[in-house]
Amino acid sequence: MDKSPQESDIAFIRALAELLRETDLTEIEVNREYGDDDVLTVRVARQITAAPVPVQVGVPTAPAAALPAPAGVPAAADPSDDPGLVASPMVGTVYLQGEPGSPPFVKVGDVVTEGQTILIIEAMKTMNQIPAPRPGRVKRILVEDGSPVEFGAPLIILE
């Protein structure tokens, strides 16, 4: 295969990009074999930026209401009012540990550094590590392992 782009390859790449848009996938990789030593590998990816979603103040989400504050820590009326809130950046299923049976990423009282993984959110069969946005101590964990979360849902409070 010569190195100049062929019209069929360009059409193929455009079709893959359109498939990403239609299916809300973030990336796709395909290998096309033309012969023994003639392979075209195409990876098409896109960056998704989530639009801000208005959050109703005063209506606690089920996971936050289900978990009480640790002893000696006063419960905030609404976790979204807490300045240390870490909110979900996406819709998915939250996991507090890397795999079943392993220790959790963080526990109440742990000190975290900025960028440290605090939990995972599975979205569209992809495990997304959620980093601590700033250093601090884990004050409350507002979700249960394996529970579904919405965009903007309270996950953890750092102090």
Rank of each mutant, 00 (worst) to 15 (best):
M1G: 14
V149D: 01
V39T: 11
T117L: 03
V86T: 02
N128Q: 09
D2E: 12
E22Y: 06
D78P: 10
Q6G: 12
V73S: 06
D78L: 11
E114F: 11
V53C: 10
P131R: 03
P52F: 02
K139G: 01
R21I: 10
V86K: 05
A65G: 04
D110E: 04
Q47Y: 08
I141E: 00
P148W: 05
P83D: 08
E33D: 12
I121D: 00
T23I: 10
A15K: 14
S102D: 04
S80L: 12
R43M: 13
A76Y: 10
G92L: 01
P70M: 14
E99M: 10
V111L: 09
I10R: 13
V86M: 06
V112C: 03
R134P: 01
D78Y: 07
R43F: 07
T93F: 08
E18T: 14
L25A: 14
P103F: 04
A71W: 03
V106K: 01
A123P: 06
E122H: 11
P135Q: 08
A50I: 15
V73C: 03
Q116P: 09
L155M: 11
L85S: 07
D78K: 10
Q129C: 11
T113Q: 15
L85Y: 05
P100E: 07
A62I: 08
G72C: 06
A87S: 11
I121G: 02
R140N: 07
P148M: 02
S88E: 09
T49N: 07
E144I: 05
E122K: 11
A17D: 10
K107M: 14
D9E: 15
I28V: 15
L85A: 13
T93H: 08
I118F: 02
G136H: 04
A123L: 06
V108C: 04
A123N: 05
L158M: 12
A15I: 03
D82I: 09
L67G: 08
N31Q: 11
A17K: 09
V112M: 01
A153R: 06
M90P: 02
E33W: 10
V42N: 03
A69S: 15
D2L: 09
V112F: 07
D110T: 03
V59E: 08
T61M: 09
G58Y: 06
E33A: 15
P83N: 08
P135A: 12
